[in-house]
Each structure stands twice: as C-alpha cells, then as structure tokens.
Design a protein around this nucleic acid. Sequence first.
DNA 1: CGCGACTCCTGCCGGC
DNA 2: TGCCGGCAGGAGTCGC
Length: 270
Amino acid sequence: MPELPEVETTRRGIAPHLLGRRVTRLIVRDARLRWPIPEDLGIQIENQTFTAVRRRAKYLLLDIGGGTLISHLGMSGSLRLVPADTPVLKHEHVDIELDSGMTLRYTDPRRFGAMLWQPAGAEHPLLSHLGPEPLSDEFTGERLYQLSRKRSMAVKPFIMDNAVVVGVGNIYATEALFAAGIDPRREAGRISRARYLALAEEIRKVLARAIDSGGTTLRDFIGGDGKPGYFQQELFVYGRAGQLCKLCGTTLSECRLGQRSSVFCRHCQS
DNA sequence: CGCGACTCCTGCCGGC
DNA sequence: TGCCGGCAGGAGTCGC
C-alpha cells in the first residue's frame, strides 16, 4: 500500500472535493476486493452528503449518511478525483459520482484493498485493537520499551505491529531504524529504553517529513490530488541494498524479517 | 499468547 | 523476443 503518508496525502487531497458534496451514484464494477464490497453500499451513500474525511491508521474514514465508508488502499490501491466522463481503465473498480461533476475513483490492481460500511455508533472490528497514531501524544518511546519487554521477535516486525503503533510500514520502519542506528534484526526485548526513545522520535520524524513531502513516490503512486510525492530521493536505505551507505560508504546489507525485505548498514546500525 | 508462515492478486523486472 | 521465477507499499488468519 501506500504507507501512512500516502494515505494522509490522499485524505488531504480528496477532502476538499468531498465535504458538503452529495453522492449521485455508486458504481461498483468489481466488488472482489480483500472482502467483497457490501451489496447495500449504494443504498447507504447515494443521495447522502459527506460530512467528514478522516483517517485512522491506513484506513480512510468517509462519514456520510448514517455511518462511515471505510476504505483501505492495500498494497496497490489509490483514490483519485476525476471528471465524471473520464474513460475507465483496467483495475478501476469503483466510482463514487458526486453532484459536483467529479467522480471519486478507486483503483486497485492487486485487490488487496477494501471498501466497507460501518453504521454510526458501531466500531468496525478492523478498527478495534489498533495501537496509537504515530504522530499522537499516546505514541512514545516509553510505550515501545514497555511493550517490547519479553518480546523475542526482531525489532523491525515489532514496530510494524499495528497493536504497537499503527502506520509504520516497510519503508518507514526501514528508514527509522537506520536513522536511530538500530540493527533491524535485534531482538525487540533486548533493546534499551534510551534506544526506544530515540527510535520513537525517528519514527515520528520520518513520517512527518514524508507527509510534508506528499508521500513517497513508489512506482505509480499518485496522491489524491493527482500530484506525485517527492520523498523518494530522501530515502537512505529502503530499496538501496548493494548500494553505498550515504553516511559511511559501506555497502548496504539486506535480509528478510517477517517475510519482508530489510535493508540496513552494518556499520551505522547495531 | 506469541510468533512465524501463509495467503490474497496483478504487474514488473531480471535472467536465461 | 519470450517465458519463468521472484518480488512488491499490507495485514488478517491459521497452526504450532
């Protein structure tokens, strides 16, 4: 997926176009996402007006009518606004037509994403059990330290656990561990409080910077307003295995942790 | 309960 | 040029 900065960039891009607008029609060309798109989604949102465009973790929460349209972009999804008469391409599975003449179009080649409905007052099971937002006051190095005690897994999959903190995907976990000088293979439960305090700060910094930059441009990611992000040239290690560390010149190493590729500098990270 | 493996799906890239 | 294997931004679920 787009990672958290890309989702936030999408939210900011689409929000001004949705707020106060009425849905004239929902078109589902392919309902087979990670879970089937509910058959009654059209009944829920047609002729209703968007009242808020929120985000929780990597879920976009669009308040409308008697509830919330929940959308997740998975690994390859995007939501963009296009003029209503824009030709439909492959993998453009859903259109939400607005009374403004614009259409919110959902595209997802791999169909790992989701589009679900949550009635007002009920919390969707996907949203319960989520840890704190990384840019909120509830996310601290002390929390990382406390939750990591007696955890035997490597620190990288630990910080990617949504029950620990949400929104830290493979790119930013990799970058934050580099910035904090921590070897991603280290056992989570054997890292000091001081190092977790530093790591939490680096997670906040890398995510905040990426959001400011409009998200990382990865292959074909396009933000909600159609503009690509400009963060990619700022990556120190992600996607750079075999290349030289920008800080010390050592050839960057790669390993797999939790089935995800992990790049690190064996000189700068311990 | 914690952990690692597996799974969903399509596209792309490198190697032969 | 084409085929094939491997890998890709996520994360729920299952088995041990």
